[in-house]
Simulated assay, not measured.
Amino acid sequence: MTDIDATDQAILRLLSRDATLSAASIGRSLGLTQPATWRRIKRLTDAGVLAGRRVVLDNAALGFGVTVFLGIRLATKGRTSLEDFERAVTAIPEVQVVQHVLGQFDYRLRITARDISDFERILRRRIMTLPGVGQVEANVMLSEERRPGPLGAAP
Results as ranks from 00 to 15, higher is better:
79 R>G: 12
113 A>G: 08
118 D>R: 12
2 T>F: 08
138 A>I: 00
96 Q>T: 09
149 G>D: 12
74 L>Y: 05
45 T>P: 00
37 T>C: 05
43 R>A: 13
12 L>H: 02
138 A>N: 11
135 Q>G: 01
70 L>E: 15
81 S>I: 11
80 T>N: 13
136 V>N: 08
136 V>F: 09
35 P>W: 03
97 V>P: 04
72 I>A: 00
102 L>C: 15
108 R>K: 11
41 I>Y: 05
57 L>Y: 13
35 P>Q: 08
111 I>N: 04
3 D>W: 10
81 S>T: 15
96 Q>G: 10
51 A>S: 14
59 N>D: 11
27 G>N: 05
71 G>R: 02
18 D>K: 04
6 A>M: 09
110 R>Q: 04
5 D>Y: 05
71 G>C: 03
107 Y>V: 05
54 R>I: 11
24 A>F: 06
97 V>A: 01
77 K>M: 06
15 L>T: 09
116 I>K: 09
143 S>H: 13
31 G>K: 08
100 H>R: 15
22 S>C: 10
42 K>G: 05
104 Q>A: 14
136 V>R: 12
52 G>D: 05
19 A>I: 02
2 T>E: 12
16 S>F: 03
148 P>Q: 04
69 F>T: 11
87 R>E: 14
73 R>Y: 10
18 D>P: 04
72 I>E: 03
24 A>Q: 07
41 I>S: 05
112 T>A: 05
110 R>E: 01
44 L>Y: 00
121 R>G: 01
49 V>L: 02
66 V>D: 00
93 P>T: 11
100 H>N: 13
63 G>R: 05
136 V>P: 02
29 S>W: 12
120 E>H: 03
81 S>Y: 09
10 A>P: 05
135 Q>L: 15
30 L>H: 10
154 A>F: 15
24 A>W: 01
130 L>F: 04
133 V>D: 09
4 I>T: 10
55 V>A: 09
114 R>D: 01
89 V>D: 01
63 G>Q: 03
124 R>D: 07
42 K>A: 03
73 R>H: 11
105 F>A: 06
12 L>Y: 08
24 A>N: 06
53 R>K: 14
72 I>N: 05
111 I>R: 04
54 R>V: 14
55 V>C: 06
81 S>E: 13
41 I>T: 04
61 A>K: 15
92 I>T: 03
140 V>H: 02
25 S>Q: 13
98 V>P: 00
129 T>Y: 08
27 G>P: 04
17 R>N: 12
121 R>W: 01
104 Q>D: 14
84 D>F: 07
66 V>N: 06
66 V>G: 06
76 T>D: 14
78 G>H: 09
77 K>H: 14
152 G>D: 01
149 G>L: 08
114 R>G: 08
40 R>F: 09
45 T>E: 15
142 L>A: 15
52 G>S: 08
10 A>R: 13
115 D>C: 03
